[in-house]
Design a protein around this nucleic acid. Sequence first.
DNA 1: CGCGTCTTCGACGTGCTCGTCGGTGCAGGC
DNA 2: GCCTGCACCGACGAGCACGTCGAAGACGCG
Lengths: 164, 164
Amino acid sequence: MADVNLDEKDFEILRWLDREGDVDVDELSEKLGISPSTVYYRMEKYREQGIIDGKVPQLDQKKLGLNLTAISEIKSEYGPGYDEIGERLSNLSGVQTAYFMLGEKSFILIAHLRDHDHLQKFVDDIIHTEGVSHSATHIVLKTFKDEPRLLVNYEDEDLEALRS
Amino acid sequence: MADVNLDEKDFEILRWLDREGDVDVDELSEKLGISPSTVYYRMEKYREQGIIDGKVPQLDQKKLGLNLTAISEIKSEYGPGYDEIGERLSNLSGVQTAYFMLGEKSFILIAHLRDHDHLQKFVDDIIHTEGVSHSATHIVLKTFKDEPRLLVNYEDEDLEALRS
DNA sequence: CGCGTCTTCGACGTGCTCGTCGGTGCAGGC
DNA sequence: GCCTGCACCGACGAGCACGTCGAAGACGCG
């Protein structure tokens, strides 16, 4: 459940996979100087342990017409039932990410939308969600970075610290 | 550059790919009742047009030891040079997403971190970034949703509206 | 030392996927 | 009416990536 023991070799493999999702076992084996069957053996474990859960094709938001990114900060009525509200918000059409923030009793949503009409519908959806008492939605003017790959974002130093 | 003309069939293919990244051409062909070569033909176009840009293996943050998610709101000094500051912030170790917000002259960063030590280093990095005048970093208490796949987040109605 | 488990290795075959190709039909332009 | 381009189809073959297996090395533990 928590974390798993991963040595240097594991991280080498995972970094390659992360960076270039399309590498196959033989290629990896060659790059790292490890036998293909060993690479296979390790990758099998990652899957079993749930460290890797399938592959996701990267779709281009803008080319699909989702030109607008919105961030909403949402406050809910005081009391229990956060989980339910969180679930409801998560299920709103267009929501990609839903966080519950420490200390502020508020949710953060990230959504990708088509245009202003879509945005209006989205805000309506939020307002009409049961338990929501206040919301503020902000528009992203420029996306400097939106990196679906995980490990490429870290300096070597930080990655080394992840080994156990 | 902008969006592309995608018909219903295109969206069927893309939704399948998005939902189950591991389907192959033959499988898709069978599910949709289209010839394999046609599926291939269309998918080739998606790649050419950049609608699909490779596949990314899904790594589990928590199992890798990245248990902490932080959201930072950052204000910069008044004046030009936003692009540079945005770039600098994007390159900080651990940052996965960096947005520049409309109207508020501020940046939003999303980062995945190991622990409080790592968080401290992260905040330090932000503070020491040239051009940053103010920052507030919030901790995510619970992640309700963090869906790397794009299209699964939308109701049918909204997807239909994307067709042109 | 001796046992068991984990890890690595190289070899192997085979099933399957990819990508190509030739041909067809449709639509639009001139 | 013809030509061109686009979308689609079905068949085909070559390559190869996957996954298995048996054996051997490394390691920990009693």
